[in-house]
Write a protein that binds this DNA or RNA. Structure first.
Ligand SMILES: [Zn+2]
Length: 440
DNA sequence: CGTGCCGGGGT
DNA sequence: ACCCCGGCACG
């Protein structure tokens, strides 16, 4: 259509004379990451090393025992539990603090976000080759958080959600690792749900969760029978079984692997009204039953590690992805050695700000983005399908004021380097995308 | 009004 | 895939 003018085309020469003229002062003439051969590059190893050291400080060797329900032993392998705990602990300690929840810390909402960001998170946590996101924080071959396979555990994790959305980080975690996603919910078919008691020598099976809870409460926890309140603690002691009435699959139903086709991302039916286990089950008369107190601990645990157990965030996936392979070292870390953080910067870097670890207002370090609650403004509708109800038409819908996007408060490349040095920005910033270097 | 970045567009 | 920018929410 438009007759191309020679001028413009020549100016725009896509080959190497990129159009970015401004900010050319400090630049050799063009290309942004063109300083590979500069002596500065030598500095890189050092930075890296220090970073590594920093990491090393984590209590990796002796996991100090975690305040975990002692009674809470599942049918088998306490060993795995330990491993799990260790893993969790490790992750936790590696990432100093992850709970930096802005004002609105809601249950359902949170999980909603979780699912959304979950993929990204898991990718940087344990997954190996999952670059689903456009510019997901590309995780180097990161091998930590061994997704310990645990048959029985997984069984109940598959459904654990239904009972308590935030029952236990362990389970939730495992779920995420196993599926890398939200979990499809349950069979839509003619599947009957049963609840099986996991207590030591009790294989009781009931058809209602409330019944099961009651059973556990009274029979195993030795609680008052009349007490209707459930602490959510019971959830740990029973599991849910899907009995396929249709094809009579029977058996254990095991978990139904998420089918790629029907992932139904948004549908997160967590409506724990049945026993609305509050975040802090501080019932007015809680005796001092040991197993119960744990519930508190558990809760805390799950809070302190909300969805994001990642550690260290390598910088921009963008430039790192470059064919030049700047991140050579994260290729194959020596066996036994995990965490091979290799944050790098193409080159020159009179760092106005150290790129790893950022501290949040609360004074804690925030290694990686919380994988949720951080952004996403149009998340809205904590409650799905609000079927046309003449009542309360414009009540909940608080588009702007209600659902405010916190927007991280860390200075990003733009501000740090300024418009002048735009070439120093991380790729994401240059493209007006979520900053990768100074992630919240 | 600057900043951060989503969504969408161009190549 | 790379790159850019309109436009908007947030401060
Ligand atoms: Zn940036």
């Amino acid at each position: 259509m438009r007759p191309p003018s020679i001028d413009s085309s020549s100016l725009k020469s896509p080959t190497h004379c990129n159009g970015r003229v401004l900010s050319g002062e400090a630049e050799p003439g063009n290309g942004r990451p063109r300083h590979l051969s500069e002596p500065l590059v030598l500095k890189q190893p050092e930075e890296e090393t220090s970073a590594l050291q920093l990491l090393d400080q984590t209590p990796l060797r002796h996991s100090p025992y975690i305040p975990v329900p002692r009674q809470r032993k599942l049918p088998e392998k306490a060993g795995i539990d330990e491993v799990m705990a260790a893993a969790v602990l490790t992750s936790l300690s590696t990432s100093p603090v992850v709970l930096n929840n802005p004002p609105s810390g809601f249950g359902a909402e949170t999980s909603c976000d979780t699912w959304k960001e979950a993929p990204a998170m898991s990718s940087s946590c344990s997954s190996s080759s999952n670059n689903s996101g456009d510019w997901s924080w590309d995780p180097p071959s990161d091998l930590s958080t061994p997704s310990t396979p645990s048959p029985p555990l997984s069984t109940d994790i598959a459904t654990g959600f239904l009972s308590s959305l935030q029952s236990d980080i362990e389970e939730t975690e495992a779920t995420h690792f196993l599926f890398g996603d939200p979990i499809p919910r349950k069979r839509k078919n003619s599947t009957k749900v049963m609840f099986k008691c996991l207590w030591k020598n009790c294989g009781k099976v009931l058809s209602s969760s409330s019944g099961m809870q009651k059973h556990i409460r009274t029979t195993h926890l030795g609680r008052k029978a009349d007490l209707d309140q459930s602490d959510g603690e019971e959830d740990f002691y029973y599991t849910e079984l899907d009995i396929n009435v249709d094809s009579l699959t029977d058996g254990l139903s095991s978990l139904t692997p998420v089918s790629p086709t029907s992932s139904v991302p948004p549908a997160f039916p967590i409506l724990e009204e049945a026993q609305a286990v509050p975040p802090v089950p501080v019932k007015p008369e809680a005796p001092m039953v040991s197993p119960l107190n744990l519930s508190a601990a558990t809760t805390i645990l799950s809070q302190s590690a909300p969805t994001s157990l990642c550690h260290i965030q390598t910088d921009h996936a963008y430039q790192a992805m470059g064919p030049s392979g700047l991140q050579a070292d994260l290729k194959s870390p020596p066996p036994g050695m995990e965490i091979s953080i290799a944050w790098q910067q193409p080159s020159l870097f009179p760092p106005p700000l150290p790129p790893v670890l950022f501290k949040s207002p609360s004074g804690c370090l925030t290694p990686i983005r919380p994988a949720d609650v951080g952004e996403r403004r149009p998340q809205v509708s904590p409650m799905p399908i609000a079927k046309g109800h003449p009542l309360v038409p414009p009540s909940m819908p608080k588009p702007t004021t209600g659902t405010r996007k916190p927007r991280g408060e860390a200075k990003k490349c733009r501000k740090v380097y300024g418009m002048e040095n735009r070439s120093m920005w991380c790729t994401a910033c240059r493209w007006k995308k979520a900053c990768q270097r100074f992630v919240d």
